[in-house]
Design a binder for these strands. Structure first.
Length: 340
DNA sequence: CGCGTTTGACCAGCGC
DNA sequence: GCGCTGGTCAAACGCG
C-alpha cells in the first residue's frame, strides 16, 4: 500500500499556462530556422564546424549526425542536408514549433546542429544534435556544475560499478553533479505510442508534466550497465500524433535488437546511400522489415512521394504506428567502434 | 524473483 | 527570497 499510487499521477495533473511558447522538446529555448539548419550541416560537411555564427573554435570533427554521435563513418548522414526538404521549416516552426537545444559552443545562439528529415512521405523526423559543450541559455543546471561535470564522467562510471550503494550515499552530490555534457538528438516522430522501439532497452525513471502541454514527459535511461544514455519522450500538444524523443549521450554497447537480428550493419552504409525519402516508398521494404523488430507493415510506407507541403500551411501528417526506426538506428548503430 | 513502471518527494536553477 | 519548473531519486508496486 502506498499513499496514492496508480492514477494519482501528480506530475500529469498540474498544468500551468505561462507564456506563449510551446512545450519544449527538451527544455531548450531555441527555435531554429531552416536556413540555420542548413547552415549547420553545410558547415559540418565543409569542415567549418562549430555550428555557429561565432566562427567556432570548436570544430566538430564530424560530417554527419551519425559521425557526430558515434564517431563513425564520415559519410554518414550526409544526405540529410544534401536534399532540401521544403516542409522542414513548416514542420518545425509552424506546425510543431518545437524548441530545441542549442549547444552552440560560443553561446551565440546559433544552431549547434539541427535538421529535419522527411523520412517517409507522411512521417517526419526532426532531429537536433548538440554537443553539450555549452548548455545554451535555457538549461538551468549550469552553474556550479561545470566543474563537477568534468569529474562526473569518471564519477559516473564509478557509481555505475558501485551500484545502488554508491548512488544512495552520494545522493545529494549526485543530484548536483548529474547532468548534461552529453550530445543530444531530438526526434519528432509520428507515432501513436509514446515509447518508440529503437532497439535498445530502457528503464523509465521519471515522469513530469510538461509546461503548456497536457502530455507528460517521460524519462528513460538505458538499462545497460555503464551506459548512461538517457532519453526523454513527450508528445507534442499541438500535434498529439507527434512524439518528441530526445536522446542524450552515446550508447556504449550493442543494440540488443541488433544482437538478436544482426541486421544493424545494414543500416549504416546502405541506408545512407540514399535519402530515405528518395527511396521508393520512403524506405526499402526489406530494410523496414529488418530494422523493425516487430516486422514491417508495408502500409505504413506509401509507395509514392507526395509533393512537398506548403511551408505556410503544413498539413497534418498521417499517423503511424511505427516510428522511423531506421533513423533511430542510424543514430544508434549497433556497431560501436570504441566498444571494447 | 527480476525487471520495469509509477509516483511522491526532493533538489537546483531561474525569473520576478 | 520565493515560487515555479525541470530533472532525478527511490520506495512501492505490477507483471511475466
Amino acid at each position: 500500500m502506498s499513499s496514492g499510487r496508480r492514477g494519482g499521477d501528480r506530475h500529469g495533473l498540474y498544468h500551468q499556462h505561462g507564456h506563449s511558447h510551446l512545450g519544449r522538446a527538451d527544455g531548450a529555448d531555441y527555435v531554429f530556422s531552416g536556413s540555420e539548419m542548413e547552415s549547420f550541416f553545410f558547415n559540418q560537411l565543409a569542415g567549418v564546424g562549430g555550428g555557429g555564427a561565432g566562427g567556432a573554435d570548436e570544430i566538430m570533427p564530424y560530417s554527419s549526425i551519425t559521425d557526430y554521435l558515434q564517431g563513425l563513418d564520415p559519410t554518414g548522414l550526409a544526405w540529410h542536408l544534401d536534399v532540401p526538404c521544403p516542409a522542414q521549416d513548416a514542420l518545425v516552426k509552424h506546425e510543431l514549433s518545437v524548441d530545441v537545444m542549442s549547444y552552440d559552443s560560443q553561446g551565440t545562439g546559433s544552431a549547434a546542429g539541427e535538421g529535419v528529415v522527411l523520412v517517409t512521405p507522411n512521417s517526419s523526423v526532426y532531429f537536433s544534435s548538440s554537443d553539450g559543450e555549452e548548455e545554451g541559455k535555457s538549461r538551468r543546471c549550469k552553474k556550479g556544475r561545470a566543474k563537477a561535470e568534468e569529474e562526473e564522467v569518471v564519477e559516473d562510471e564509478k557509481d555505475e560499478e558501485d551500484g545502488e550503494n554508491s548512488k544512495k550515499a552520494n545522493k545529494p552530490k549526485k543530484k548536483a553533479e548529474k547532468r548534461q555534457q552529453q550530445p543530444r538528438v531530438a526526434f519528432l516522430t509520428k507515432s501513436e505510442v509514446d515509447h518508440l522501439e529503437d532497439g535498445y532497452r530502457w528503464r523509465k525513471y521519471g515522469q513530469k508534466a510538461v509546461k503548456n502541454s497536457p502530455y507528460p514527459r517521460s524519462y528513460y535511461r538505458c538499462t545497460t550497465p555503464k551506459c548512461g544514455v538517457k532519453k526523454r519522450v513527450e508528445r507534442s500538444y499541438q500535434d498529439p500524433s507527434t512524439v518528441i524523443t530526445t536522446y542524450e549521450g552515446h550508447h556504449t554497447h550493442h543494440s540488443p535488437a541488433s544482437l538478436r537480428g544482426g541486421s544493424a550493419h545494414l543500416f549504416t552504409p546502405n541506408v545512407h546511400a540514399l535519402p530515405p525519402h528518395l527511396m521508393p516508398g520512403g524506405f526499402h521494404p526489406d530494410l523496414i522489415s529488418l530494422m523493425h523488430p516487430m516486422g514491417a507493415n508495408p502500409n505504413m510506407y506509401l509507395p509514392s512521394i507526395p509533393p512537398p507541403p506548403s511551408p505556410m500551411a503544413a498539413p497534418p501528417l498521417q499517423q503511424h504506428h511505427l516510428t522511423d526506426f531506421a533513423l533511430l538506428q542510424d543514430f544508434f548503430p549497433s556497431t560501436m567502434p570504441n566498444n571494447p
